[in-house]
Computed example of a mutant assay.
Amino acid sequence: MLGDVFDAVQKRPWETTQWHSPKQLKERRQAMRAVLERYVIGAHLNFNIDMKELGSLKPDSSMQGFWEFRSGLPVEQTRLFGFFGRPGAFVATSFQPRGNFGGMSDPAWKAVRQDGEKHWNDLFGEKEYIKMPWPVSAIPSFLR
């Protein structure tokens, strides 16, 4: 995880305002950490709820290989974006509130992906991230 992304997950994804109390900010961070903890220990993750490959609906999509971990309700949803370098090795490039994005046609999605790819290239140069097959299994280990 990039240092500034880790800092955002740990400390400050959003400034505290009258609409976002310190308690709400803490709940958002806890929700994302809970999703990541389930991923790290190999617990069940629900695809399209806890995580999603953003190009999965269109195989030729420019979003192919770009993933998001999702935290959901009851707090404002957050997204942790990044790429898999190899199975089980996720490189997080951005952490943002879901409210920053409209529908999938919103240019903000492509912008966060382009920014993520720039971070990837700064770190790994020409090394490709995984596009296909998926670097994670959609079947929980206890069912395999």
Rank of each mutant, 00 (worst) to 15 (best):
M1H: 12
D4F: 14
D4V: 06
V5C: 02
V9F: 04
K11C: 10
W14Q: 13
T17G: 03
Q18D: 12
W19S: 12
W19F: 10
H20F: 09
Q24R: 14
R28W: 07
R28C: 04
M32L: 14
R33S: 05
R33Y: 08
A34K: 11
E37K: 15
R38Q: 05
V40H: 13
I41M: 03
H44E: 14
N46M: 07
F47P: 07
I49V: 14
E53Y: 02
S56Q: 12
P59R: 07
D60V: 08
D60F: 07
S61Q: 06
S62C: 07
M63Y: 11
Q64L: 14
Q64V: 13
F66T: 02
W67N: 00
E68Q: 05
L73I: 10
P74Y: 03
P74M: 05
V75S: 06
E76I: 05
Q77L: 04
R79I: 01
L80N: 05
G85A: 15
G85R: 12
R86N: 12
P87S: 13
A89K: 11
A92T: 00
T93S: 13
S94P: 00
S94A: 15
F95S: 01
R98G: 03
R98T: 00
G102M: 09
G103N: 14
G103K: 13
D106M: 04
D106K: 10
A108I: 07
W109K: 08
V112R: 00
V112I: 15
R113C: 13
D115M: 10
E117T: 09
H119T: 12
H119L: 09
W120R: 00
N121K: 15
F124A: 09
E128G: 11
P133S: 07
W134M: 15
W134A: 09
V136E: 10
S137I: 03
S137C: 08
A138R: 15
I139M: 10
P140I: 05
P140T: 04
P140R: 11
S141I: 10
F142I: 09
R144N: 12
